[in-house]
Amino acid sequence: MIIFGTRGVTTTPQKGEFHCPTCETTRNYGLKRVRRFFTLYFIPLIPLDKLGEYVECISCKDAYKPSVLDHDPAANRERFEAEYQTTIKKVMMHMLLADGVVEDSEIEMAQQVFQKVSGREIAQSALREEIYLIRESQEPLAESLSAVRGYLNEEGKEMVIKAALYVALADGEFQEEEQRMLAEIGAGLGMTHAHVQGVISSAA
């Protein structure tokens, strides 16, 4: 038994609630900090370097990196929902601009689809403003698609394709530019050509 030397001393400087990945619900946690202390007679006297930190779930006793405290599933869900709705809107606006002609029927369809997906109303004037901004900035769609691609499931991706398709078909025609745009959207979402075609066939 070593009576003089150094040993790690664990303290709990912070407690609270967090989303435990193992329990998959909100639990109490303790932020454990291990610091090396110089000891005499096993009495920790001089604090030395910090050896590390970890978060321990009080319920399941699993340990995680402190970054788990930044994970807020509710906030993440909200952020994702907002990004998803924004992407659908952008996809529809790009589809509107694909054939170079912006028709009222297309804007009306975009309004309906967006309201159905988001559950909130949007004025046509807002959509027109969006179209104007996209046209001016020539912002590439690929960027928005890559942002959501990683965490959209198949159903989500199909919804994006369908939203763009409904807008494309709103004027009664499915033009070549619109077909190309749809293929581009599918590719941006990581969908195969066959999958995109399948969605088009089932929705049309």
């Binding site: 038994m1 009576i3 030397g5 150094t6 007679y41």
Partner: peptide, 24 residues
């Protein structure tokens, strides 16, 4: 001697109080 030995922090199997009481 303790710094030259490759000490590791092991979890006590029993009587975790023993080293602290002996030190005091």
């Amino acid at each position: 001697a303790s710094t030259k030995a490759h000490q590791s922090q092991e979890q006590a199997l029993c009587h975790a109080w023993l080293p602290y009481v002996t030190g005091m």
